[in-house]
Design a protein around this nucleic acid. Sequence first.
DNA 1: TGAATTATAATTGTATACAATCTGAATAAC
DNA 2: GTTATTCAGATTGTATACAATTATAATTCA
Lengths: 230, 230
Amino acid sequence: MKRGEKSSDTWIYDQVFGAILEQRLRPETKLTESELCDVFGVSRTIIRKVLLRLSLDRVVELRPNRGAIIAAPEPKEVREIFDARRLLEDGIVTEAARKCRQVDTDALESMSRQEHKCIDAQDISGAIRLSGDFHLKLAEIAGNRPLHELLRQLVAQTSLAIARYVPAGQGMCDDDDHDRLISAIASGDVELSRRIMREHLSACERRLMLETPETHSDLRLVFADVVAAQ
Amino acid sequence: MKRGEKSSDTWIYDQVFGAILEQRLRPETKLTESELCDVFGVSRTIIRKVLLRLSLDRVVELRPNRGAIIAAPEPKEVREIFDARRLLEDGIVTEAARKCRQVDTDALESMSRQEHKCIDAQDISGAIRLSGDFHLKLAEIAGNRPLHELLRQLVAQTSLAIARYVPAGQGMCDDDDHDRLISAIASGDVELSRRIMREHLSACERRLMLETPETHSDLRLVFADVVAAQ
DNA sequence: TGAATTATAATTGTATACAATCTGAATAAC
DNA sequence: GTTATTCAGATTGTATACAATTATAATTCA
């Protein structure tokens, strides 16, 4: 079973990955192998390959003998992801600002327009995905394949973080950081580009409710003081 | 089949990965599934899982219908890997210099001593592996899991680059950059640490013979001028 | 009734069987 | 003699069968 030119497992991987990016699959959702087999009409061999790849991207958690679930990053992990992104994307935006050509600017602007359209249409899922694609496009412009690949992993994990820590229906990027970023990059202003990127990522991070306690809290901790007072 | 606590596929993955790091498996070596099955006494299911993981780490190249070979990064890719490492490890060493405790310094010094021992004993393989472990230890000290994981991939690819572009039997790090790095980090001198790291990585890169033409060159390019003059 | 235990069903882990594809040598054509 | 072609063997891709483990329901015993 092939769709287009890709192998079936890559196609299925993209479908599941996309569903996670667009939050149609939310954190902690169980991914039963046989169900995925039915959905995509392939054997468990293929599904297990897809799940392994997703787990190595850390968007799926593979629990031995207990199946796969969509990953649910803890607040601490999310902060580390943003720290890592600030580091990587500082380098990426620096290089992008140096190398950016007219075609690149056009591509970025096109992506930003699409993103605005999604936001206007309340299409949160689409907006989140396009926002990630925008950052990956910068990595592509910067022209470093390993960095691009590493950022791809971090962007995916960021989408999970957004899915988990932003109230459903609320957007992440109602401002126009991306447009300001495009201007700075197109003009080749490295320092300005870096500052915008740094502040953009920090603004995204602040919008997440990382201080909110976990839904499945430790009962001993929850009632610690009550029990102590008793 | 379990060795210690790990699952058999993780154990086999480590064995193959280690063999690549230590250059017992050189670039372009064919990894036939049935041979690996015999060697490790498991079915192809397990071997294929291991090969998939290795290919996602980009240390193995999985060619559709044509099997797996040890990856052989091109000079351009190697330069990109070093560029990526300079970026990541700049952030890592900065954080490591801030957070480094006595136990960490002790661990680093112990690793460096081991490395010197390997070099003295002409154990190039061991030295390459320990050198990578040293850099990964810094990432661990820096305390950012995603970054640590990303660097792990880059370190593995660096080992491949060394395997390919350093003449057999010649060491990479006969100087004591690592020791100077430990001193700088232990003293908490961020700027000095960063400079040493940056120069250390660049020195490693320069030691590679990236300007050497490929063994399997493009015949059209090789004879381009001859044909044109004819 | 309620906790513990057992039995049963569902799910995952691994090996194997079979199909598809590739490789290379032998044969055929020029 | 060189280039095509065909065919056999080897290798990879996928599906399925069976074993091991976990989850759930039923049952037993206090």
